[in-house]
Design a binder for these strands. Sequence first.
DNA 1: ATGCTACATGATAATAATTCTCATGTGCAA
DNA 2: TTGCACATGAGAATTATTATCATGTAGCAT
Lengths: 140, 140
Amino acid sequence: MESEELRNVGLKVTTPRLKILGLLENAKAKHMTAESIYRQLGEGGEVIGLATVYRALAQFEAAGLITRHLFEGGQTVFELERGPHHDHIVCIRCGRVEEFYDKVIEDRQREIAEKLGFTLSDHALTLYGECSPSCPEPKR
Amino acid sequence: MESEELRNVGLKVTTPRLKILGLLENAKAKHMTAESIYRQLGEGGEVIGLATVYRALAQFEAAGLITRHLFEGGQTVFELERGPHHDHIVCIRCGRVEEFYDKVIEDRQREIAEKLGFTLSDHALTLYGECSPSCPEPKR
DNA sequence: ATGCTACATGATAATAATTCTCATGTGCAA
DNA sequence: TTGCACATGAGAATTATTATCATGTAGCAT
């Protein structure tokens, strides 16, 4: 249960945190902005302060429960850290996000960092393109 | 000459644009923020409105003269589009930026996009790590 | 169960980064 | 050289995010 997750990372189990975690688990969209989380909770009758949403997301990220992605266009999105690591490909027209994992790339990254004398701690790889020749306009 | 570059992409040759392009070419730091460009020009006696800096950078980017990178920590940096394509590795402690190019990764990206039905138009790959075990704190 | 205390929350102010507005200035083609 | 579309600068406006602070509460110790 979600309460467990919170306790495990040393965070108090509070209603706002449970709501936010719950939404991230059940929402149709896997990648959400702080704003969209705030809005959807509000629409669902769960009014939670925007500041609390930001705080919770920051804590979840620090605890490793979620990941933050800085996609182009200034949209900062959060995603539940579940399952294996993966990177993203974003459609520049409709905004659709697909995930992928490529062992070759992962390995090369580590090698490259090492060769340059860096201790790799993280990486951000996002591809951008059109998801189909007839992709419609953004939904924004 | 820089005037050429501007004319070639259909932009009028103006003093602010030349100054900004010139700074990007000669500055010690290869990756600069709008703010740092504004500040350095000001210190050099070339006072140019901050809004103009932002405008010029946006136009240069649209014209393909420069590239915009969204590194973690909220810093948006610009870099002259010169020489071959490359990606970056950023030190999470001191902020140092190194560049690298890896054909294997580049090729895989194209293959992955294709496999997912996307037409690749761009990508962002940035590695994060510590540049040395004894790296000092940020310089900010 | 009750109280205590550290931590959490919400409303709002504050910041930071970037974009917009608009009156004025200017590159450059005719 | 002149006209006009485009450029500029100063500051207002927006957007995204973080800080402040008075008040509420989870959860441990009674």
